[in-house]
Each structure stands twice: as structure tokens, then as C-alpha cells.
Design a protein around this nucleic acid. Structure first.
Lengths: 256, 256
DNA sequence: TTGCTCCTCACGTCACGTGAGGTGGC
DNA sequence: TTGCTCCTCACGTCACGTGAGGTGGC
């Protein structure tokens, strides 16, 4: 008469002691007879069942799936095909993640910006505030709007005007701000001309153009100093004064 | 001033409401100021942090790993390489499982027997008891012993003698059992001659030859009827009487 | 008497999901 | 007053891991 202890069948089946008890708890494995001292006494039937459970679990079946299978069914074909599909899905998801991770490594790209949104060289020359703003923009715009902003950023000039804006002191006086605004206005005009699609960049925003506008405006208030915001406002006014009044709402000044 | 509600940043970041609260609970995300009514009021800084958490989590980092990262580090190269290795390991494990599942499907093989132990045609012609015994044997022997038994099973004859053994009534009388034993003895002799490696099949048993012997013997007691066991015993006696006494211990009668 | 094995609770893990029960703003 | 949103517990999920505290056999 076979007389295996819990530890023995566990080792025979290649599982842990706790796993055997867990299978008892969830009703996957019947409890065996006890000896007079209360010790469990497992037989061949338990080992067979346990080996089957362990095998199916190793293949990737969940315990409820194993419980639902007919124990006498040697070859549960449908369940196997379903499992194959599940495994394939899982593998694809992990491979997708790994591909992204490898892209990040190879291109030394920042993890925060969505891959492919803007090239790493572009990301590198952006100020902290600009990059933060880009993250907000990337969450709030639809794919079309995102592409428009990405293109804009890629072509964005980087020179003394931009540096002056980035480094503008919080207490810059009237004259300084007005002067900077006047230097920036032509730039904004150029960018809008080069990227007419920006006007419709918020039409496919997932949560609506209004929400996107407010989010971007709010973010700018948070990310730029009052002096910088004042310069942007002045520059937009100059641009507006020199052209037809825009019929679409605010536009946040075509990137600075 | 930005003023997003919990639901709003959750949707902006593409996470669930509960996830945001969970990140608060585990200290990954600071709680924002409250309005007078106790509602949370999130700002751009929270959104940036949340987007980063979500992004890293999607790539496969655990929350503790994310917590351990320097938030100002744009490109945590070492962590990315570690993650790449982790993902590769996970993918390999799943691919291994999928390969086994596909082998099972293609060859319509029974799930209980280890792949490659015996070919499916062989498995198909075994009796219930024999297959159960094989499962026990497969858990108790080492690779060398397993191979020996696999070879033995593959070559095992299937004819009237085996059928007579399988169908032996539990109340078969003396004469019947003795007659069957005499017919089986030559078969056993042949099998032992053809598979001399069987004598050492238990030398690489992971838990020791004694344990393996006892387990197999116990299993046979469970799986065969007393009449069948009696026939095996008689057949082994006949074999032993016609040959030199074996120096190695019991051998469970070379498969049945 | 001393180790060693076995037993039964029962909490911990991981990243949230899912109500329960209550309150504030329109 | 009626929905709708927000809030805070707090238990559930999944497959066990890991002690805690106690007992039996040599």
C-alpha cells in the first residue's frame, strides 16, 4: 500500500508543499485518508491527479481552467488551442514592450515622450518647460493634432530669440517684454504659414477641442513665468493686429 | 490655474481612477491640494508624474522599480537594460510553453505524459493501469532510467498474452494464474535480454533507487489486481529459477 | 529530552477591481 | 429634490510564500 506524505507527493510531482495544500483548498485535489495521528496519506491516484495539475499549470492553464477540464480527457484539444492563442497574445504584448524598450536604449531617447512623437535630437534641444508641455499636449491631442505639433517642433528654430525667451527674468520690465514680443511676432507668423494644419490640430482631440485648449493653456500657466506669458500674449496681439481676425478660438501662440 | 479632478488626470494619463489612488497609497504619486470640499485638485506636475508612471508600468517595470528610479533621470539606461533582459526571459518561458502546447496539439499527444517520453502511438496502446504506472515511473526515475523504460515500452509486444494479463479476472483460479505466468516468463526473459540497461535504470533516480523501487512497487499494488500481481510474482519466480540469481535488488518484473 | 515532520490558521504578495456607504454641487 | 461626481474604507483577485504556534514519533 502506497503511503506518501504531503512532502513526498509534492516532491514526486515537482510542486511545493504549499501548492498541494492550495489545490486542496480550491477543490482541485481531493484530500486523502488520514493516519491515526492526523497525517495525510496519499496514494497513486493523488499523485496522478497532482502531476496532471502541475503539468497543465506549467503549460499556462489557470487553476479554474484546470478545474473545468474533464480529468479523464487525455487530450483537451479545444482548451489547448485556446491556451495557444492566449500564449501568443501574451508573447506579442511582451515583444511589443521589448521592442519599445530596445528603441529607447538604442536611440537614447527620453522615456517620457511617446516613441515616434519627436526625434531625440529635437527632444534634446527643448527646454524643461517645453518638454513638459509636450507631454501634456501628447495626452490631450488626437493623432492628427499630434503629428502637426511634432512637425512644428521639428522645424522650430533655435536661436537668440528663443534663448531670450527661455532666459527671460521673472521681473523683466515693460520695455524688455514688448521688445521681445516684437521680435517673436514674425517668427510666429512664419510658423503658422509653414504649418497651416495647426489651425485644425485640436479637431480630433479625444476629449474635445475645448478640453484640450484649456489643458494646454493651464499647463502653460504652470510652466512659464508670468513675464513669459505676458510676452506671448503681446506677441499674439501683434500677429493678430497684422492679419485677419481668426475665426477659430485661441491657439496658444503656435508654440511660444 | 489647472484644476483637474481625479477622473480627469486619470483619463488624461490613460489610467484608471483606482490606479491613481493606488499610486497615492504606495507613495508613487504625491497627493495634490484639496479644494474646500475635500476634492483633490491636480496640476501639471501631477500629470507629468502620472504619465511617467503609466509609461514605465506599461513597458513592464514594477511599481517598486519605478519608485526606485530618479524622477529627473530622462533615460535610465541600466534599468532599461535590466528590463530588456527580464522581458526576454519571460518571452522565452512563454515560447517554451507554447512550443509544448503546439507539439501536444499536432501530435494529438496525451497531456499527462512528459513530451518525448514515449511516442503517442505507443501511449495509445497502453492500458489505463500501464499509463498510470508510466506517470509514476516518469516522476521517480532519472533521465537515464526514463530512457530505458521508454525504449522498453516502445518495443513491448502486444498480443494475446498481454490481453490475457490485462483482462485477467480478479477471481482467476490457481491453474489459470500459473498458466498465464508460464506464458509470460519467456517474454520477460526476452525483454530483459533486449534491454540490459534496465538493470541500472534506477541508479540515477533523483530521490534514490530505494525510493523509486518502493514507489513503483506501491503503484503497482494500487494499479493491478491481486490476481495480476500474483501472476507477475509467479512469472518472476519462473524467470529467476531458470537463470542466475540477480545481484541487484527487485526489478518490478520488467514492465508487467 | 531533543530534533524532525506534520498539522492548521492566517497574513503577505502584486496591482489594482469592485462595491459599500456617505457627501457636495447644480 | 434629483442625478452626477467625489470621497474613504475595505474586501476580492491569483497562486501560492511565509511564518506562527502546536503536536506526534523516534
Amino acid at each position: 500500500m502506497p503511503a506518501w506524505s504531503t512532502r513526498e507527493i509534492a516532491e514526486l510531482a515537482g510542486t511545493s508543499l504549499r501548492a498541494v495544500r492550495h489545490y486542496h483548498d480550491v477543490g482541485l485535489l481531493a484530500e486523502p485518508e488520514r493516519r491515526s495521528n492526523g497525517y495525510k496519506n496519499y496514494g497513486v491516484d493523488h499523485l496522478l491527479r497532482l502531476v496532471r495539475i502541475k503539468r497543465l499549470a506549467d503549460l499556462g492553464f489557470s487553476l479554474p481552467q484546470i478545474a473545468a477540464m474533464d480529468d479523464s480527457d487525455d487530450h483537451p484539444e479545444e482548451a489547448l488551442r485556446d491556451l495557444d492563442a492566449d500564449l501568443t497574445r501574451s508573447i506579442e504584448n511582451l515583444e511589443q514592450a521589448r521592442a519599445e524598450v530596445r528603441t529607447l536604449i538604442e536611440r537614447a531617447a527620453p522615456v517620457d515622450l511617446p516613441v515616434g512623437f519627436i526625434p531625440p535630437e529635437t527632444a534634446e534641444r527643448l527646454s524643461e518647460a517645453d518638454r513638459a508641455l509636450m507631454v501634456v499636449v501628447s495626452r490631450v491631442l488626437g493623432p492628427r493634432g499630434l503629428r502637426a505639433y511634432g512637425d512644428l517642433l521639428r522645424d522650430a528654430p533655435v536661436g537668440p530669440i528663443e534663448a531670450a525667451f527661455d532666459d527671460l527674468p521673472a521681473d523683466a520690465d515693460e520695455a524688455t517684454r514688448q521688445a521681445l514680443a516684437e521680435r517673436m511676432a514674425p517668427r510666429i507668423r512664419e510658423m503658422r504659414a509653414a504649418h497651416p494644419e495647426l489651425g485644425e490640430s485640436r479637431t480630433d482631440a479625444p476629449r474635445g477641442a475645448r478640453f484640450a485648449d484649456r489643458a494646454i493653456a493651464d499647463a502653460m500657466v504652470d510652466l512659464y513665468s508670468p513675464a513669459q506669458l505676458d510676452v506671448l500674449r503681446r506677441a499674439r496681439e501683434i500677429v493678430a493686429a497684422g492679419t485677419q481676425p481668426s475665426t477659430s478660438g485661441s491657439d496658444n501662440g503656435a508654440m511660444r
